[in-house]
Design a protein around this nucleic acid. Structure first.
Lengths: 347, 347
DNA sequence: ATCGGGTGCTAATGCGCATTAGCGTTCGGG
DNA sequence: CCCGAACGCTAATGCGCATTAGCACCCGAT
């Protein structure tokens, strides 16, 4: 009484079994009841009964081809989503995405097939399956602006996770500028006057935002001295040497890995952490277990980010909805984790 | 020079631009060169040039409808895949799945839309999109045998992760029986003669396999005394009380969470762990950070499991390949993590 | 008896693509 | 110079579904 085995189930077969036409089956399934397509309850029930006796499900490809939405959301990650290096970055996002997609009854199409070119995936390639999804979510620290423009051009519905500078790109991001500024305020309130910023050597929006938040907040105070520069993971000893001469009382470090390493180096150098030098971390994605140390740090609401992105995308896809510009480009507040590495300055 | 904006790109439009027919475009794109469908290099190049100047990509839905494969693998998880409770369980699997799918140029369709009914997802439901995928991977501790049968019936290509007792179900699993047996041997070699098995109260194949491995290996030794029973998380104190009277020298505990909790209870009860009572853990999925304790335990090769499942599925989907029964139902060796909680018995 | 209007459905079409049968053309051999 | 074969392509069809136009029927009113 389950699947009639061999032949593939189609609306036509259902129609035969129920003694109606294929069109009727479609109408029943889609609950249409226009003035020009009326199905009495008796017929409706008969069709539904037949369907219940089979394993029939509408072919999604055919539905899509016929022009209806599919409740499939594409998920594109610029780096492999699961491997350990990126796991802390993507997993919380995916948690939120999955939960929200479930709410909306959507499936997720993960574009794992995108070819990797010098370390990053390419969204557009010969056989991309973007078109199968109703819309797409883009995840990744950095995105190719050209690809984003192209998506905008072709009016493909999508949402980027993280603020993007490309015009017309809808996104849900994190207000790193405000978060960083708040951390600066806290440091200043604790008596810090000599701050060092060790940011990543990247032009990703999130990186620039943190620098901006830092710069602007620092400018709001008169007597603060600042040292600022990029750090590379392979020369942290050199970085430390340069910072030491500046004699900062607090380090703002973007990468948790670098922070952990610098802490080691400083301690080996005879500096007491955090009594002599506080450390604040601005990022939360660690390759190693750098966060074993209880750093005071920014904690972007990643799960929320994923969920909000899905919610926004479904709004974009809803023809009855007209998201405002503010909805389309939104920043979430960045939480701060109160760790033990930011303490008051002692004279 | 990128996307011509408005109108959707189709083979027909490409054909117009190149001055050929839609069929020719299709033939060029699919590299067909039958005796009855020849395209000279000049024409071929012209078509390709036109395509290069546009953002054209073949509509996957149409391809699918026209009967060609889509390189889309479905992924069905019986519980939500990402939320924290299941994260240790699914993430490694997904890591392997993603990597292998990438190798094969496949995308992953995650069926997040499956409705949840008393804690578990249902694969078959009114609007399931199984049919969009070429085949599917099934993940979960327990699977509904009825649904598995139905998949077999409808000859839908799929692979289950974990051994399944349902006839005709292809799977890649873990040899928990052998792994458990090996742990028993090690315990015996260390002088243990009174063993307690605290297994989960479940009839999942993996649970039964561990019990079987335990039972069979124990039977191979003459002088061993055994206590065995199910544990529930909400009455571990009671469980401990009952075991204590048995005076085991080693506990085989299936759940890491239960193991951590029992260790606590035993220590509070004045028992020295592991000097007086060793503990061996048979599972590796912990809700809490139970594995903070360095338990001696089974470590199934999860990443490998995911990758192998994908590899098998693609073999099933390959019309030129004919996997043997042994290929279709395979168990991977279970690693053992040498922790600090299994020690020699002292008299 | 006739006619308007409501009722219950179906035939037909198109979505974008892959595929097959076959048509018009050219070219080489006799 | 004619004919068959190879060549280069296209028209036509179907995949499974959603949707629209409209047909056949019946009922009540005139």
């Amino acid at each position: 009484m389950t699947a009639p085995g061999k032949t593939k189930m189609t609306q036509r077969r259902i129609a035969e079994l129920a003694g109606v036409s294929q069109a009727t089956v479609s109408l029943v399934l889609n609950g249409k009841a226009d003035s020009d397509a009326r199905i009495p309850e008796a017929t409706r029930q008969r069709v539904l009964d037949v369907i219940a006796g089979t394993s029939y499900v509408a072919d999604p490809a055919a539905r899509r081809l016929a022009g209806v939405g599919n409740k499939i959301l594409g998920v594109f990650t610029y780096e492999p989503a699961f491997p350990s290096g990126s796991i802390d970055f993507y997993t919380p996002l995916l948690t939120g995405i999955e939960a929200e997609a479930e709410q909306h009854g959507c499936d997720l199409l993960v574009f794992t097939s995108a070819p990797v070119e010098n370390g990053r995936r390419r969204l557009f390639h010969e056989n991309n399956r973007l078109g199968l999804a109703d819309g797409a979510l883009l995840l990744g620290r950095e995105m190719d602006p050209v690809e984003l423009e192209r998506l905008v051009d072709m009016q493909f519905p999508f949402v980027a996770i993280g603020r993007r500078d490309v015009p017309g790109v809808p996104y849900v991001g994190v207000d790193y500028a405000a978060g960083t500024a708040e951390l600066v305020r806290r440091a200043v309130a604790l008596g810090h006057r000599r701050l060092a910023l060790l940011h990543l050597d990247s032009t990703a929006e999130s990186v620039l935002d943190r620098q901006r938040g830092f710069r602007e907040e620092v400018a709001a105070h008169a007597d603060i001295r600042v040292w600022s520069g990029p750090t590379r993971g392979d020369d942290l000893v050199g970085a430390w040497t340069r910072i030491r001469d500046f004699r900062p009382t607090v380090l703002f470090v973007e990468s948790p890995d670098h922070a952990a390493e610098l802490r080691r180096i400083a301690i080996d150098d005879g500096v007491e952490i955090p009594r002599e030098v506080s450390i604040v971390v601005l990022g939360e994605v660690a390759v190693h277990d750098a966060l074993a140390v209880d750093f005071t740090r920014l904690s972007p609401p990643r799960v929320q980010l994923g969920a909000d992105a899905v919610a926004l995308l479904t709004r974009i896809l809803d023809p009855d909805d007209e998201p405002t510009d503010a909805d389309l480009r939104r920043l979430l507040d960045c939480d701060i984790t109160d760790g033990s590495t930011l303490v008051a300055v002692v004279e």
